[in-house]
Amino acid sequence: MEIQFLGTGAGQPSKGRNVSSLVLKLLDEINEVWMFDCGEGTQQQILETTIRPRKIKKIFITHLHGDHVLGLPGFLSSRAFQASEEQTDIDLYGPVGIKQLVLTSLRVTGTRLPYRIHFHEFDENTLGLILETDKFTVHAEALDHTVFCVGYRVTQKDLEGTLDAEGLLAAGVPFGPLFGQVKNGQDILLPDGRQIIAKNYISEPRKGKVVTILGDTRLTDASIRLGLGADVLVHESTYGKGDEAIAKKHGHSTNMQAASVAKQAFAKRLLLNHVSARFLARDVRQLEKDAQSLFPETHVVRDLEEVEVL
């Protein structure tokens, strides 16, 4: 499981940062890629990666500000041009209005897609569990921005215990159907009369990963709830230390507020994005250093950076 950042800038693109978009790569888990936000130029950023657009099966939009959604029409259109690959449907989750935005854009431009878009819109009254599969759940909760905006909590369900194959072989169990029975939790009896207790050869279930991806927000308790115990917390850092007043005015957070959220949520790692274009390279290093003074496992990400979820 990896996160790759396609755009880490705030509001408008700069020479070093495109606007908001990232992907959660679940290739080993379910052979899919999930996208979160799709600002202008996202499809161009994808060309600099190994991401295959057809692998993107789900898109989650945090809010309808242009720097988070204006790349959607272009991306959806380009996804249709890969004629050599199978056409697959896509699920699009987001606030009420995302369907109208996409369909109007496609209609006005005369774009016809060879696949279906399944829209899943929500408002303040229909949040909570918005997706559940056999391996993942996704919860959404409202944040505190200048427009309706949400954060997402992606939870991997606990993984099955692994079979101790070497232990079974050492116990004299022949490789074959008996291995399968033990893996399924069935005790077995060997020809010599010895009983093999299945639970002794299967490890405990492994805890699934939790990834929290927040949209634009002021400092709010909702961020802490969404990030509780997360392996990775992605939080905006539009402003820096001492900018609390202007951050609140414009519906955003500082690096220190993000660090405070991560600390209170007992998150394992904090990744800061949505960085204002006014911050130069040396300023970004200071953003990271200041936040690390409160939450040491903090990193300010850059465009195209890939982070493994450990």
Rank of each mutant, 00 (worst) to 15 (best):
T111G: 08
L228Q: 06
T155V: 14
D67S: 15
Q257V: 05
A198F: 01
V33W: 02
G9T: 07
L233Y: 07
V154T: 10
T50W: 04
Q292N: 07
A10K: 08
V150A: 05
E48F: 15
H252I: 00
V307I: 14
I130N: 04
V211N: 01
E2W: 10
K248P: 01
S237V: 00
C38W: 06
L92K: 10
S77D: 02
D158I: 02
S203V: 01
D221H: 10
Q186H: 07
E32P: 06
E85Q: 14
S276T: 05
G110Y: 06
Q87T: 04
L47T: 14
D28S: 14
V300M: 11
K268N: 12
G66K: 15
L214W: 02
L294A: 14
T62W: 00
L159F: 03
S78M: 09
R79Q: 08
G251E: 02
L26G: 13
R112E: 06
L6F: 03
D283H: 12
L103R: 11
L270K: 12
S276N: 15
L219A: 04
F36I: 13
S21K: 09
A165Q: 10
L72S: 09
E85L: 15
H252C: 09
A10Q: 05
L287I: 03
T155D: 08
V309A: 10
L103F: 01
K25M: 14
G172K: 09
V307F: 13
A230M: 07
P174M: 05
F119T: 06
E236Q: 14
S223G: 11
A258T: 04
G180V: 01
D67T: 09
L22V: 07
L280A: 12
D37G: 10
I59S: 05
Y239V: 06
